[in-house]
Structures are given as structure tokens and as C-alpha cells.
Design a protein around this nucleic acid. Sequence first.
DNA 1: GCTTGACCTCAAGTTGACTTGAAGTGGCAG
DNA 2: CTGCCACTTCAAGTCAACTTGAGGTCAAGC
Lengths: 153, 153
Amino acid sequence: MKLLDIGEVAARSGIKPSALRYYEEAGLICSVARHGLRRQFSPEVLLQLKLIAMGKSAGFSLHEIAGMFGRNGLPQIPRKTLRKRADELDRQIRELAALRDTLRHVAECPAPSHMECPTFRRLVDVAGKRGGRARKAELLKKRGQRRRPLTAA
Amino acid sequence: MKLLDIGEVAARSGIKPSALRYYEEAGLICSVARHGLRRQFSPEVLLQLKLIAMGKSAGFSLHEIAGMFGRNGLPQIPRKTLRKRADELDRQIRELAALRDTLRHVAECPAPSHMECPTFRRLVDVAGKRGGRARKAELLKKRGQRRRPLTAA
DNA sequence: GCTTGACCTCAAGTTGACTTGAAGTGGCAG
DNA sequence: CTGCCACTTCAAGTCAACTTGAGGTCAAGC
């Protein structure tokens, strides 16, 4: 199993070396050795990076992701928590789908003002309904964080 | 149509007054009048805020969202762009679904190391396949932004 | 053996999205 | 008329997630 140095990992993952060092510092990934000064990564890290990218895309902070995948990059948290996360993702997926449908609708709809188009209002409402209460509770609880970078970048 | 002052909007939307002012400053919403010094918002703004929340949840930056919904909070951009956005959302939804499935799988799977579980690997791979090329191109193009906060907060 | 270039560390800077604090304003209840 | 209190502005602070820059290391090719 040959090792990769940081430039190689960067090239294959599309993540800059500086970010990779930052991730290592943050405990999200770890290099398995050094060649001189140079970090050597196992190819495994590419999979971990994919997981990290997925997590970021899902709106989790690096800190949360770090907590999600323990030491070796494999998830090591209570099943219950995992299921809760999955449920949250379901909610988020529904919202995104609503936004997507809204955009598609707007792209087609010839109405002069969307605010008056019933289809538009219904679409927007859909997003709010599901989990509205839960969302509010979460808001009150989490005062002051959850910036959630969207990634995809 | 009665107007709301900022505290009222904050209470109904769950967004702090300071953030609302910030959004106004950024051109995402606008107050329709002043009562003394106090901003007065049309109830319409609540719908706009919902759209903004959806956009944030979808991973768009406030700047992007501002570009998405013009002046009065209604989308005013080329249909083609809207459709492209919708397609991007589709991709993102697929990724989130993959992450969700991965989490659910991990919550159930009794394998000692997930990295060795074929189901796990397949799930993770799914996310990467679709749009890998497109993603890379975007990366090269957008150097240096797209931090994407996740919101949902 | 010398250069080169990809790596290293560490501190400081950047960006986006807000929040916080100080100092002021003004409508309205008493 | 007097307070009060929710609002106002503006500057500065904060936090996450990186990036940038200065100054240094070292293995490999010439």
C-alpha cells in the first residue's frame, strides 16, 4: 500500500494542501508517517475526505464532522445519534427539494408576480411546514452557532 | 395590510433583529417605511425570509441569494440560471441522500470496520460519482469562495 | 556537492455572517 | 411632562474555515 504525500492527496481530492494540514490539525484526518518532513498519507484518506465533503455538504461543521467520525475516520457514535442525524438529513432533503421545485416553477411560470402565484406560495409553504416547530426549538437551543458552510466549493 | 416592526418580524421568523438589519443592509430584504426611527416591514417579508432560509439551507451564500431574488424579493434572473441552480440542487440532494443512507447503514451494520464493508464503500462512492467532473470544474473556477454556511441554525 | 522545488511551521490575514456595545432617539403609558 | 424601552446607528468584535507569507528543511536529480 503506497503512501501519498500531501500534494498527491490535494491533486486527487481537489482540496488544497493548506486545507489538508488544517484538517489534520483539527483531527479530521491523520498522516501515517513522515518522509523527511513530509507527511505521508494512506490512500484511505481519500475516502475519509469524501466523507468529510459529504458531511460539509450536509451542513455539518468540521467540529461536528470530527465528532462524527472518530479517530480513524470511521463513525463511532451511538446508533441513536446517527439515526437522528439521518432524520435531520431527511428534513433537509425535503427542504432542498422544495427549493428546487420552487426554482423550477419560477423558471416556467409566466405569472407577473410570483408572490401572487398560488403554486409559488404553496411550494414555499411546503418547506416551512415540516419541522417548523422543531426548527424553532433548535433555534432557541443553539443560539449563536451553526454557520454551516456549504461546501460544495 | 398592517406593518410589523423589527421585533415582531424577529419573533415570527426566529431571526434576530441584528441579523434582519444585516440582511437589509445586504439588500436581501427591505423595510417599507419608518415609524419614527423604527423600520416597518410588510408581512410579505416573512415569506421572503423563508425563501432566504431555504437558500441558506441549500448552501447558497447571502450574496448569491441576493442575486437570486432581486429587489423586491422575487426571483428575477434568467430562466437558464434558475434551471442550472435546480440541477445543482438535484446533485446536492443526491449527495445528502447518500450521506443519510450511509449514516443509516452505519447505524445498523455490525461489521467491525466500516472501511471493509462493501455496502459502506458503495454508499460512499455513490456520492462521488455523479458530477465529479462538474465539481472539479467549479472548483477551478471559483477559487477562493463558496464557504457555505449551513444554516438551518 | 549544489540547486531546486515540494514540502515544513507558525503567525497573521481574510471572508462571510453575524453579534455586541456604546451612545442616541422617540412614541406612548402613566 | 417624564420615563421607559424598544428601537436606532456605527464601530468593533467574534467565529469558523481557510489562505497567505516569511523563513526554513531536505531528498533527489544534475
